Simulated scan of single mutants.
Amino acid sequence: MATVLAVDDSASIRQMIKVVLGPAGHTVIEAGDGAEGIAKAKNASLNLVITDLNMPVMNGLDMIKNLRTLPALTGVPILFLSTESDEGIKQQAKAAGATGWITKPFKPEQLLAVVSKLTRD
């Protein structure tokens, strides 16, 4: 099963990700902003990063750009989970290195399906 880093300034969203992915056998590591996410990513062997866009300290786009400079994370999928659905922002996210996008609010089965697809060996 996968080790997933969930980065969101909303504790309830991080908890929801954990509630959805935990019973499926995934380990979820939580971070409250992009800077904390980078720190935790450097100290874990990750299979997937799920991040919000709008967060204090460091937003999701800047975090992705930073994560993509780390050799251990170059091939790790990064999934945006955001209320934003603007095409321009999606393009920026893709350019920064995001693998996919789910718009909040999300359906648990949708998140589980995407995580399974992205973490399949």
Rank of each mutant, 00 (worst) to 15 (best):
G25T: 09
G34L: 01
Q92K: 15
L61V: 02
A6T: 06
A95V: 10
M63W: 13
Q15M: 10
V49R: 08
N54Y: 15
G22Q: 07
T3M: 05
L73M: 14
I13L: 02
T3F: 08
N66M: 04
D86K: 00
R14G: 03
L79M: 07
T69L: 13
V28F: 05
P23H: 04
M63A: 10
T99E: 09
Q91D: 14
V49T: 08
L118M: 11
P23S: 08
L46Q: 05
N54E: 13
V19P: 05
D86N: 07
V76R: 03
Q91W: 07
A2F: 01
A24Y: 03
I50E: 00
R120P: 02
W101K: 00
I29A: 11
D33N: 15
P105W: 01
G22R: 10
G25W: 07
P56S: 08
F106Y: 04
N47T: 11
P105I: 04
D9Q: 08
A31K: 02
T99V: 01
N54H: 06
P108N: 12
L112P: 06
T74C: 05
G75F: 12
W101G: 00
G97T: 12
M58N: 02
G100I: 02
N59Q: 08
T3K: 13
D121I: 13
M58W: 13
G37K: 04
T83P: 02
